[in-house]
């Protein structure tokens, strides 16, 4: 059982993606809203999503089962962070 909160997950995702974005001269708002869609904002694609999940596992030191994550919500920051929080707690 982990004490990781959705806010921790969001913090990591924002910091990780910010670093990636800097390389192309773009920015990610420090606290994007819950319904912020990383895909539609052009921040991530399927390859980026794949890499992000690997980074999340490495950072939190635990395998994450993405089975229950609705593909519709996969790239939306609020649902994504809450999903990772729930999964890490199981």
């Amino acid at each position: 059982m982990s004490g990781v909160s959705a806010a921790d997950v969001k913090k990591f995702i924002v910091s990780h993606l910010s670093k990636e974005l800097e390389s192309s001269g773009r920015m990610l708002n420090g606290d994007p809203p819950d319904d912020f869609d990383l895909l539609q904002e052009g921040i991530i694609d399927s390859l980026g999503m794949f890499n992000l999940t690997a980074e999340l596992e490495e950072h939190f030191g635990q395998e994450i089962d993405f089975e229950g994550l609705d593909p519709e919500e996969m790239t939306i920051i609020g649902p994504l962070c809450r999903y990772v929080e729930r999964t890490l707690r199981q």
Partner: peptide, 12 residues
């Protein structure tokens, strides 16, 4: 083939 790896990852 990368798409297969992606789909496997997300249990598709």
């Amino acid at each position: 083939p990368s798409t297969v790896v992606f789909m496997k990852r997300f249990k598709m």
